[in-house]
């Protein structure tokens, strides 16, 4: 079995291995969701490069083929639990539909759905099959959505802010569930989040996005220990951690992506920017265990 599951999008070069969790972290409007959607070709804009899953290039598949691919090989979970479920359809029927659409009989679908609800930790699963989404709490809804996403044993799940709408206690629960799923089933995950802390709970590799570009990619632990890109550094010192450690805010805000700054997109906010940064866009370059795009990375 090919262990490398996914690779490369448009100058954004990353690999997710089997059972691994890769985090895409960036502030609002940095293009995380767009990237997530383009990975499964749900994004209208053109994507160049290649997206390889188990050696198959998604960009070369026909519409029909990609439709089959979604759900069975790769699936996506969105932030807002309420919008992802049909409000007028019983939870059980929605789950069963995933199976019947793929050729399972009604009774097979029922058994499988029941099993799934148990897998994602929903108590009294039989009863829950008969309830409507609004009768479930936010955390329960998110579990049902996760159940639907993993129903057909995909190789990769893309989770776009799966816990941002939830209380911190429920968030911990859902992260725990995702962690268990990847450990027990070798499921690979791409976690999209604006929250470094959430990324750290679940992931072993991380890519930091700024204004539509990846600026640093590598093992989470080493990036958190010694961030190399000026933006990653700035982000780390913006996080209110334990008590009363002083914050060093980064001035300004994320630029509008319809008109990003020339040269390095971070240069207007970067304390290390030099002339070259305003003129030339830096490329991702390999430095030790990671990729960094900064003209001055060796000097600072």
């Amino acid at each position: 079995m090919e262990s490398r599951i996914i690779r490369a999008v448009d100058g954004i070069d990353f690999t997710v291995r089997e059972g691994d969790c890769f985090a895409i972290v960036g502030e609002s409007g940095s293009g995380k969701s767009t990237l997530g959607l383009s990975l499964i070709r749900l994004c209208p804009g053109d994507v160049s490069g290649e997206i390889l899953i188990d050696g198959v290039n998604l960009l070369k598949l026909s519409e029909d083929e990609i439709r089959k691919f979604r759900g069975s090989k790769i699936s996506i979970i969105f932030q807002e639990p309420s919008s992802a479920l049909n409000p007028v359809m019983k939870v059980g029927d929605q789950l069963m539909e995933v199976f019947t659409v793929h050729g399972y009989s009604k009774s097979e679908a029922y058994q499988k759905s029941l099993q799934l609800l148990k897998t994602v930790g929903i108590p009294e699963a039989e009863k829950r099959m008969q309830t409507y989404p609004h009768q479930l709490s936010g955390g329960m809804k998110q579990r049902v959505i996760i159940a639907m996403a993993i129903a057909l044993n995909p190789r990769l799940v893309i989770a776009d802010e799966p816990t941002s709408a939830l209380d911190v206690t429920i968030q911990a629960q859902i992260l725990n569930l995702l962690k268990n799923l990847s450990q027990s089933y070798g499921l690979s995950t791409i976690l999209i989040t604006h929250d470094m802390g959430v990324a750290a709970e679940l992931c072993n590799r991380i890519g930091i996005m700024y204004a539509g570009k990846m600026v640093e990619i590598g093992p989470l632990n080493s990036i958190f220990a010694i961030p190399l890109h000026p933006y990653t550094r700035a982000l780390m010192s913006c996080i209110p951690r334990s008590l009363k450690e002083n914050l060093k805010p980064l001035p300004g805000h994320v630029p509008d992506l319809s008109n990003p700054p020339k040269g390095c997109r971070f240069h207007p906010r970067c304390p290390y920017a030099k002339e070259v940064c305003t003129l030339e866009e830096p490329n991702l370059e390999k430095i030790d265990d990671r990729l960094v795009s900064c003209h001055r990375v060796g000097e600072i």
């Binding site: 955390g139 206690t169 911990a172 629960q173 802390g197 750290a200 951690r241």
Partner: peptide, 23 residues
């Protein structure tokens, strides 16, 4: 205990405390 460890390192439950989060 539910706060990601990056922000707060203290954990007061050794057992799987997340089970307690049920509404």
């Amino acid at each position: 205990s539910s706060v990601p460890a990056l922000y707060m390192t203290k954990k007061f439950f050794t057992q799987n405390h997340t089970a307690l989060a049920e509404n």
